[in-house]
Structures are given as C-alpha cells and as structure tokens.
C-alpha cells in the first residue's frame, strides 16, 4: 500500500541543510586525516634515527630470509589454535554444565568443576606450561606423551577450558529462570531443558566473549616455544639472533595480526548484532548520534 506523498517545503529545506552538513563533515574528515598521516609519516622518516630503525626492524632481506622458517612455525601456531580451541571449547562446556547439575549425587562433580576453574583460571599460563611440559615427562610414567607440542597444547587446553567454562556459565545463568520453568512444565527433563532451551540461548549470548578467548588463545599459542617447540615466534628468535636484526620479529608479529585482526572484526560484528537484537523494540532501539 503506497500513498502519494510530497514532502513539504519545510521538510525539503531540512533535507538540504542535512545534506550540506554531511558533505562538510566528509570534507573535514578527509582533509584532517590526510594532513595527520602526512605529518606523522614525514616526521618519523625524517628523524635522525630513522635509517637505523628501518635497517633493524624493516629489513626486506632479513624478512625474506626468515620467511620460510616463520611460515612453518606459523602452521604450528595455527594447528595449536584450531585443535586447542576445539578441545578447550568442549571441555569448558562440559565443566560449565557440570556446575549446573543439581542433586546430592552430583556434589563431588560440582565441587570438582568449581575447583578446576578456580585453579586454572588463577594460574599464569606459563606456569601451567612449565608444570605440564617439563613436569609430566620428568615423571617417567609410561603411556604419557613426551612430545612438547602435545604437552604444550594440553597445558593451553587446561587453562583455556577454565576461561571458557566461566564464559559458558555466565551465559547459562543469564537465561531467565522462567525459561526453565516453562520447559520443565512441558515435561522436559533437566538435560533436555539444558540442551534445547537454555544452551541455545546461552551460546548465542556468549559468542563474542568466546571469540575474545579464541583471539587470546591464538596469541598464547606462541608460549609453547618455552618448551622448545619451534613456532613462528621461536623461528623469528632464531633468525634474529643470527644477525642481531629484529625484522623477523616484525614479520612474526604481522603474521599474528593477519589472523587476530580479522577475528577481532568478526567479534565486534557479532557483538554489535546481538546488541541490536536485544534492543530490537521500544524506545531504547537505535543509537543517538
């Protein structure tokens, strides 16, 4: 249904004013951005120390020389990120669910889950890495892995599962009790209520914080280098110590940024979307400019 409607003279005048204001704002933003960028660029490259900075940090020949090793190392980081991320997500979800169990039978399970999160959330990652990576092989127990990559990955999983468990728990608790009351009233069991009603709503709400943890994990995957695993950072360190040139570090840093910056953008996008959905109705919708 369309109704023919001509904007009034007053409205047309308003639109002209708004258009002019928008145009002016765009021009000002462009001019000031270019001016600042040029000033910063010229300022930095004309300082007396700039040639040395460029030689030490941005040497193309050093970067090219370090590239093959750094790339092989980055594959290790990505493997750790994907495998540990999936494992920490699954373990964290199990721990969070364990804490929701009711009934006296489950008291030890609840206590264990609570103790686990307290412990591994409170310990520095590097300490867990030392304990698992060096401590476990020192036990000389048969059947336990000795590969530093596997042990390092296990340490990351132990730590990150604790973070993830707390995120999931917050999500589960954010689902209103009336949802549980409705589900149980329909005859759903505790497990069915969790799986079909509470978790789907909880997971949607905690996706942004979970992705934040994923970004942290991707960065912390470089910590396994303390166990002797040659990841991108370790490869860069080796290349650096050959010529006392720090360009390989810059290369490794750029490799991490190439992964984490897009992930951050995805997180921001999802967070903005869920904020829009929550405020989808009423006077609170929309933002003030």
């Amino acid at each position: 249904m369309t109704t023919a409607w001509e904007p009034s003279e007053r409205e047309r005048a308003r639109r002209r004013l708004r258009r002019r204001a928008r145009l002016r704002a765009g021009v000002i933003a462009a001019v000031s951005t270019v001016a600042v960028a040029v000033a910063v660029g010229v300022g930095i490259t004309h300082t007396s120390g700039w040639p040395r900075v460029r030689q030490r940090f941005f040497s193309w020949s050093e970067i090219a020389a370090a590239w093959p090793a750094a790339r092989t190392g980055m594959v290790v980081n990505l493997e750790l990120f994907v495998v540990c991320g999936a494992a920490a997500g699954a373990l964290g979800l199990l721990v969070a669910l364990a804490r929701t169990l009711t009934g006296p039978v489950f008291l030890p399970v609840r206590l264990l889950a609570a103790a686990y999160t307290d412990l591994f959330r409170g310990l520095p990652v590097i300490l867990v890495l030392y304990l698992v990576g060096f401590g476990v092989p020192a036990l000389r127990l048969r059947g336990l892995p000795t590969d530093p990559l596997v042990l390092g990955g296990a340490a990351l999983v132990l730590t990150y599962a604790a973070y993830v468990a707390e995120v999931f728990r917050a999500g589960i608790e954010s689902v209103h009790p009336s949802q549980v009351a409705a589900a149980r009233s329909l005859g759903l069991t505790h497990a069915q209520t969790m799986r079909r009603v509470v978790l789907p709503q909880a997971v949607r709400r905690v996706t942004p914080p979970l992705l934040n943890d994923a970004i942290s994990l991707q960065k912390d995957s470089s910590l396994v280098s303390v166990l002797g695993v040659v990841d991108a950072v370790r490869a860069a360190q080796i290349a650096t110590s050959a010529h006392f040139n720090y360009s390989p570090y810059v290369l490794a840093g750029l490799m991490f940024l190439a992964i984490t910056v897009p992930l951050t953008r995805v997180t921001d996008h999802l967070a903005a979307r869920s904020a829009r959905r929550r405020g989808a109705a009423g006077i609170t919708a929309g933002s003030v400019r």
């Binding site: 009336s178 949802q179 009351a181 409705a182 589900a183 009233s185 329909l186 005859g187 759903l188 069915q192 079909r196 009603v197 789907p200 709503q201 949607r204």
Partner: peptide, 27 residues
C-alpha cells in the same frame, strides 16, 4: 499438566511452530 504463565515464557530462539512441537516430539 499444561501451564500458561503470566509472562508467556515462550522460547525466543524457536519459531512459533517449534515452540509448539518441542514437547510433543521430545517428551
């Protein structure tokens, strides 16, 4: 026993049809 609440307590992540079929199928 069927229960209807003051605040509806519908499942916001399920469609209208899924809200109705959830318990018959699952329970």
């Amino acid at each position: 026993i069927g229960v209807v609440f003051q605040a509806y307590n519908l499942f916001p992540h399920l469609t209208v049809l899924q809200n109705v079929t959830l318990a018959p199928v699952l329970v």
